[in-house]
């Protein structure tokens, strides 16, 4: 079956994400230059709890107003430059989500929204969930949060459009450089524990 890999016969399987053609990065960079002041976004809800949907919605309302950056939510993926995936990809929504991906014209930017979209969130290993957007389509930008606040959403769009740089970097901590400090040293051990 297309897009499904067997792990233990038909009893246990996992999805295979869509593979990008080799020169897509160049096309995406060209796209970003064009859509910097006017980006059309299409929301694909892959089975989220709706908190992400409401926060995206709140980002379009007067207090946060994404439209001042030219970001518009459109009704059809055929008009979209950016696909915004929420939810942890339930079984029922896998095929529709792929169809939305195929319907959006290339080149396109894919944003994975919320903890569920980024890596499956709290539902990452359930039987009816495939575990996050990048399990089915290639993702360009990740916006973590549960749900991400409208301000985080605006920041995420700014990163996607190349207006701001990402702030987060992976870290390798050095836990053994120092000893851990004891806490509450003036309370006897028997009472503390």
């Amino acid at each position: 079956m297309k897009g499904i890999k067997q792990l233990v016969g038909t009893a246990h399987t996992q999805t295979v994400p869509v593979v990008l053609p080799p020169n897509s990065q160049k096309l995406k960079d060209a796209l970003l230059k064009e859509i910097r002041r006017s980006a059309y976004v299409y929301r694909v809800d892959c089975g989220g709890c709706n908190a992400c949907e409401i926060e995206i919605f709140a980002a379009t309302t007067p207090i946060f107003d994404t439209e001042r950056f030219g970001i518009k939510i459109v009704a059809s993926p055929r008009h979209a430059d950016i696909l915004l995936y929420t939810g942890s990809v339930t079984r029922a929504m896998r095929a529709p989500a792929l169809r939305a991906y195929e319907a959006a014209p290339d080149p396109k930017i894919v944003i994975s929204y919320g903890a569920c979209g980024c890596d499956g969130g709290i539902f990452h290993d359930l039987y009816c969930v495939w575990g996050g957007t990048d399990k089915i389509v290639p993702v360009d930008v990740y916006i973590p949060g549960c749900p991400p606040t409208p301000a985080a959403t605006i920041y995420g769009f700014a990163v996607a459009l190349g207006l701001l740089d990402q702030k987060l970097k992976s870290k390798q901590h050095q836990p053994e450089a120092q000893k851990a400090q004891l806490k509450h040293t003036n309370i006897p051990l028997d009472i503390k524990v």
């Binding site: 089975g47 989220g48 709890c49 709706n50 908190a51 992400c52 949907e53 409401i54 939810g87 942890s88 339930t90 079984r91 029922a92 929504m93 969130g121 709290i122 539902f123 290993d125 359930l126 039987y127 009816c128 969930v129 549960c146 749900p147």
Partner: peptide
């Protein structure tokens, strides 16, 4: 039921009592 994720089984397996309280917050986002 396009959003069926399988939470009732999750609560019986991976999670303890306090973790399910966090899970239930995400049954519905509203």
């Amino acid at each position: 039921f396009y959003v069926h994720r399988g939470m009732e089984k999750l609560a019986e397996t991976r999670m303890g009592y306090h973790e399910v309280a966090q899970l239930t917050d995400r049954v519905c986002g509203i």
